[in-house]
Design a protein around this nucleic acid. Structure first.
Lengths: 149, 149
DNA sequence: CCTCATTCTGAAAATGAATTTCACTATACG
DNA sequence: CGTATAGTGAAATTCATTTTCAGAATGAGG
């Protein structure tokens, strides 16, 4: 899957007449290896450990490129930072966001997608994509809360 | 419904030991009369027509208060501005967002809510609230696009 | 009605993330 | 190689949000 995404990005770079650079390689590698749902800053800080360092702006621009190429999606979970996750076309999932610890987990459900299509059709609406997030307390935090009593 | 929301907000103000002011009254009235999904700036600009004028900061703070009191919800639809819509507890709906004209319409669907609960349960997750947005082209924009051919 | 402690208001300043600019550097095509 | 083109990164800018602070309004207790 990682190789597929690399290939997609390389093809995108080539088709656009863009160049392959050390920074883009390093950022792509780190991005694909990372946990999902990274913000620009998180990825930037992670990369600063590396050597030599890569600028914030380059991380920012490269993540935008990833999104344009289709290997990443942009997200806003309400904490003020834009987050990126790696995906491939066709793949889709939604999120469970813990309001206590901020953990983000994923799920997907075909039945919901089917109903969404029905709703859209009945409104004369042509869906391009959707976002669904369930906010609440994750199992780990709930357990912790019980212990604390 | 408008009266109910006013009452809720007044009770909230009283319970918190806050004061009732002309500005809050004006903002509440305008907010409840307005179309939903207003940004701070939109509401501020709308109010500037009035006389005398109310400051941006006051609109900002008052909308936050509305959200705390439970008569409003905060939203991010990806255009960089925070939007507020008026709701009452228990009421819930989701959104269809047109990527061409920005129009936002609402829908609600019990089947989806039921599935969401199941998913949450199977993840040991305690849902507090959820957000679901379908992005695409609305009927009006689709019609326009066809005409333009 | 006054008094006055408390809260509000709103202009201005600060913050914080995203985005642009620009001088310099790296890439890659010929 | 040489050079046109794209990329990089520090600094500056933008833009919405949030905080600060001095003066104004509110309302509870005289």
């Amino acid at each position: 899957m990682k190789l597929v995404k690399k290939k997609i990005f390389q093809d995108f770079i080539a088709a656009r007449g863009l160049k392959s650079t050390r920074q883009r390689d390093v950022i792509l590698e780190a991005f694909l290896d990372s946990d999902r749902h990274l913000s620009i800053e998180e990825l930037y800080l992670h990369l600063r450990g590396g050597n030599p360092t890569i600028g914030y702006v380059t991380v920012y621009r490269t993540l935008k490129l990833f999104a344009e190429s289709g290997i990443a999606r942009e997200f806003q979970f309400g904490d003020g930072q834009t987050r990126y996750e790696h995906v491939v076309k066709g793949e889709h999932h939604d999120h469970l966001v813990c309001v206590r610890c901020g953990a983000i987990s994923e799920f997907s459900n075909d039945a919901i997608e089917a109903i969404q299509d029905e709703i859209a059709t009945s409104h004369g609406f042509h869906i391009q994509y959707h976002k669904m997030e369930l906010y609440g307390v994750c199992a780990a935090c709930a357990a912790e809360a019980v212990e604390a009593l």
